[in-house]
Simulated scan of single mutants.
Amino acid sequence: MADDATDALEVLGNEIRMATLRELAEADGPLSFTELRERVGVRDTGKFNYHLTKLCSYFVRETDGGYELGHAGSRVIAAGDVDAAATAGDGGSPPPDDACPVCGDDDCEKYFHVHLRPSWL
């Protein structure tokens, strides 16, 4: 399990991937590959596909409507949003209607428990 967590955190160590998470967080709904690539500002589709595929292993999910943040991706954005965390006064927890897909708890404060399990397992 420690290797899974390490692998997941290594995925976040790239500016294109972090920019992709931020763009998905700001979107009003799922974004198509092209919309997302253009918002992130990457011209090379192969390069962007490589980075998006890495994110889809842990933090992003593909839906019929395009790409959107997964639960772990939302937690990463919430953890990094210092202004929202200070305003909310709750450490950046997600809204109550965002139940944890692992434990089902509305108030799950674990940013990274088994959320980091690769999507193919």
Rank of each mutant, 00 (worst) to 15 (best):
L31A: 12
S93R: 15
R75Q: 11
A27C: 07
A27K: 06
H115N: 05
G70S: 08
E109F: 08
S32Q: 08
Y111A: 09
E23N: 03
E35V: 00
V114M: 12
A78M: 06
D98I: 13
L55N: 04
E68H: 07
Y67G: 00
A27Q: 07
V102Y: 10
Y50V: 09
N49D: 11
L116E: 03
L55T: 08
R17N: 08
I77T: 13
L116Y: 07
D44K: 06
E35A: 02
T34Q: 10
C100R: 13
R61S: 05
R39G: 06
C56A: 04
D28E: 15
S74Y: 08
E38T: 15
R43E: 11
G13T: 13
F48R: 01
D83I: 14
D98K: 14
P30E: 05
E62L: 00
E35Y: 02
D44F: 04
G92V: 05
A2H: 06
V42K: 14
E15V: 12
P30L: 14
S93W: 05
M1L: 10
V42Y: 07
P94T: 08
R17T: 09
T45G: 10
G92D: 02
T20C: 09
A19L: 14
V60Y: 04
L12M: 11
K54Q: 15
R39Q: 12
F59N: 01
G73Q: 00
Y111N: 14
A86W: 09
R117M: 07
P118M: 04
G41L: 05
H113L: 02
G41M: 12
H51S: 05
H51E: 14
D97E: 13
A79Y: 06
D4K: 12
L116R: 04
S74D: 00
V102W: 00
L9V: 13
F33I: 08
R61W: 00
P96G: 11
A2G: 00
A8L: 07
P118Q: 08
C56N: 13
H71E: 11
G89A: 05
G104P: 01
V40F: 01
G91L: 00
C56G: 10
E26N: 15
N49W: 13
Y58V: 08
A99I: 09
I16R: 04
V76Q: 09
Y67W: 04
G92Q: 05
L24A: 03
L9T: 10
P95N: 02
C108D: 02
P96A: 07
T34L: 15
G80I: 12
A86G: 04
D107L: 04
R43C: 01
E10Q: 10
T45A: 10
F59L: 04
V11A: 11
C108E: 03
V114Q: 15
V60R: 04
N14H: 08
T34V: 15
F59W: 00
E109N: 12
G91Y: 14
D64P: 06
L55K: 10
E26P: 01
W120D: 12
T6M: 05
G104S: 14
W120F: 01
K47G: 02
G41R: 06
D44R: 07
D98C: 08
R43Y: 11
F33A: 06
R75E: 01
Y67H: 02
A86S: 06
V102K: 13
A78C: 12
R75Y: 06
